[in-house]
Design a protein around this nucleic acid. Sequence first.
DNA 1: CAATAATGTGTTTATTTTACACAATAAAAT
DNA 2: ATTTTATTGTGTAAAATAAACACATTATTG
Lengths: 246, 246
Amino acid sequence: MSVPSKDNLQKSIKTLKTIQSEVQNTNRVALSVDCVIFGFDENKLKVLLIRSDLKKYQSKWSLLGDLVKPEEDLDEAAYRVLKQRTGLNDLYLEQVSTFGDVSRHPAGRVVTVAYCSLINIQHYRLKILDNELHWHEIENVTDLAFDHQKIFEKSYVWLQKRVQEHPLGLSLLPNKFSLRELQNLYEAILNIKLDRRNFRKKFFSMDFLVDIGENEQNVPHRPGRLYRFDYEKFEKRKKTWSGIDF
Amino acid sequence: MSVPSKDNLQKSIKTLKTIQSEVQNTNRVALSVDCVIFGFDENKLKVLLIRSDLKKYQSKWSLLGDLVKPEEDLDEAAYRVLKQRTGLNDLYLEQVSTFGDVSRHPAGRVVTVAYCSLINIQHYRLKILDNELHWHEIENVTDLAFDHQKIFEKSYVWLQKRVQEHPLGLSLLPNKFSLRELQNLYEAILNIKLDRRNFRKKFFSMDFLVDIGENEQNVPHRPGRLYRFDYEKFEKRKKTWSGIDF
DNA sequence: CAATAATGTGTTTATTTTACACAATAAAAT
DNA sequence: ATTTTATTGTGTAAAATAAACACATTATTG
């Protein structure tokens, strides 16, 4: 390794002095991620909550969060929290928004980045059940700890908008699903009723559903056809212009 | 100012590195905001950039950012940076995304929250011109300092999407504007050509434009009608369902 | 084999989007 | 005053999309 030149050393010092001044000014904050994990079961949209660790919020539910470690990327932190709390990886995870009001956390300045994840309740079993981790129906989510109610609500609105323009909602379903299941999903997320015929027409015309030649099993009525979603095809297509409309 | 010896310089570095590691152990990070400030002038979409403070990026342009202070809300910080750099307040400002890769900043761990602002270049004069602050045409923005290119690009895509579903773009125009100006704005932001008749029809049908009974002045041809945007009416209406489409 | 409970399908109408061309007007030039 | 120029302002027809709406089909259950 070569000895650095004097010039380079001075440059390094300048950079490092910047750090020093940051430190001295204590211009630093704790940073956390909070995961809003949506699931779908019994035709209901649900969200995963735990009891808060904090005494102050003992009686309240809260989102799944943790501090970001100094040596981990922000996205990494979100995946870690998800994994830590549910034992799951390989999931959809998307950043929603960052919340940084000074007084949002009783323990001091903590800025948090909200991430959304959608997981298939049937498919996975939660492996860790600390802090009474379990699913709550969306309608019953009120009065969360910290500013988590606000974070939850923003995430929910985000989800409702997002599923209309992106098939991320499909990760809440099994790989094979019937059109009824798909419609139930959309109705649950958007909290509206949809016309069955028009819904089918719409999805077929988008042309991402692949008929896998199987039918539902163990339903007490005529079984529906099963489909899978062609993510590859979706990725290839890119809709850039949707039209001015507000 | 005396020139420090090479030995002393190396010592300084050692000391500073120690500080750095101490800081990293405390689970805290520096947090900044970066403002992506869009403007519109001469029928071009532009963005406000400065020379980086950091030596490492001396030759590159960067977004307008600063560390968030411990006692200020995140949004507040964004407004402060905007005010500090441009002398302007009372502007549109919206959070876009947060960037938190470990190595995104050479001086250590700095997580940054990107905000978008749109300002009317004609309307305001920049009062502070430190660091060669000035407007750059969108197409010429390449190779920014830090990860600012990525931040800029994400913000630009965000803007393109956002203006299609929200009239925030109108803050780039004077209060009174002609339909041609409005169309030029959309064409510049979206980087497409629009049919004039259909564009007018669309905007008139949305019914937010108020004819103020005046015409353009000092144009070397037939002057166009001037309109204002009825923000109140817009706020009252809320579009919740836009339809599944991807 | 009848009853059940859901699936699967088609048409009509209304709405929205696209494509496209010419007359009207104010300013500038002659 | 008249002509030229440059841009505004307008309408219609065709195509695509969205909305409303009802009945025959098919496995399962009893």
